[in-house]
């Protein structure tokens, strides 16, 4: 099928509730896939399965057309699937480059014996990746707590890209941002496409979805109710799917 990452027939239940019911989705390299749906439609559960936070009760994952196991965040990270959650998962008390390298800090050996953090390496590598993505953050030694929302988002994205993300999952990337910053983040998503990365975006904002997505998947009550190319649909149609077509008089 040519998908870079594919989830086939995945199901997840909690107690008596089926949060995701036999859903299949896939994203290609250099493609932006948007997943939309009402609150509680199962979007979050779906991406949490892809990123290994939940393991599915049924279904399978394919990466590069080979079946893979994703049972732990480590598994998906190992495949090159990076997830940026709404809260960005940045340590506010650490600086920019420390966050880019969080959990995978570069070390060097002091006197050939003791492993210490290699600050200058992490600093210069971070500088490079930010330049490559054309992100402007004045001081890489600034703590995250001093940055704006858009800058934080950019740091989170840079972190993923630096670690060779091949698939990037973004949960409501523009939700907490001002207008200007929203545009910058969407520009960044477009440039990720150019780098050949498969992007999955969860969003409520139809405007964002239509401005960056190549394909749109609609979830409703745990099921996939639509999977269409952006050019073959429009906002009204998507909204109808979201609220449930049968209740909409056409």
């Amino acid at each position: 099928m040519g998908f870079l990452l594919e989830a086939r027939n995945v199901t997840k239940t909690f107690g008596g509730l089926t949060a995701v019911d036999n859903v299949s989705i896939g994203v290609k390299s250099g493609e932006v896939l948007a997943i939309v749906g009402d609150n509680g439609a199962g979007k979050s559960t779906l991406i949490k399965m892809i990123s290994g936070v939940y393991s599915p009760d049924a279904g399978s994952f394919y990466f590069d057309d080979k079946q893979v196991k994703i049972e732990h965040p480590r598994d998906s990270l190992g495949l090159g699937i990076e997830t940026i959650y709404q809260d960005l998962a940045l340590a506010e008390n650490l600086n920019v480059y420390s966050n880019i390298f969080l959990g995978r800090e570069q070390t060097k050996r002091l006197l050939g014996l003791i492993e210490v953090l290699d600050h200058s390496y992490m600093y210069s590598e971070s500088r490079k990746i930010l330049e490559r993505l054309d992100i402007k953050i004045p001081a890489l030694k600034s703590k995250i707590s001093t940055l704006s929302g858009g800058q934080r988002q950019a740091v989170a994205i840079s972190r993923s890209i630096y670690w060779n993300a091949r698939v990037l999952i973004m949960d409501e990337p523009t939700a907490a941002l001002g207008i200007a910053e929203q545009r910058k983040v969407l520009d960044l998503v477009r440039s990720l496409k150019q780098h050949g990365i498969g992007v999955i975006i969860i969003s409520h904002q139809m405007h964002d979805v239509f401005s960056v997505a190549d394909r749109i998947v609609v979830m409703r009550r745990g099921q996939k109710v639509a999977d269409t190319k952006r050019d073959e649909t429009n906002t009204d149609e998507i909204v109808k799917y979201i609220v449930g077509a049968e209740t909409v008089v056409t």
Binding site: P73, T83, Y85, D87, L88, A89, L90, A91, E92, N93, L94, S98, N99, L102, G103, R104, E105, T107, I114, E115, V116, L117
Partner: peptide, 20 residues
């Protein structure tokens, strides 16, 4: 060291530390 860095990271944001 990395150990120290992780100590700060956990105090700063446990979720971030977990997910990284």
């Amino acid at each position: 060291t990395r150990y120290g860095q992780h100590t700060y990271a956990i105090g700063g944001n446990v979720d971030a530390a977990l997910r990284s």
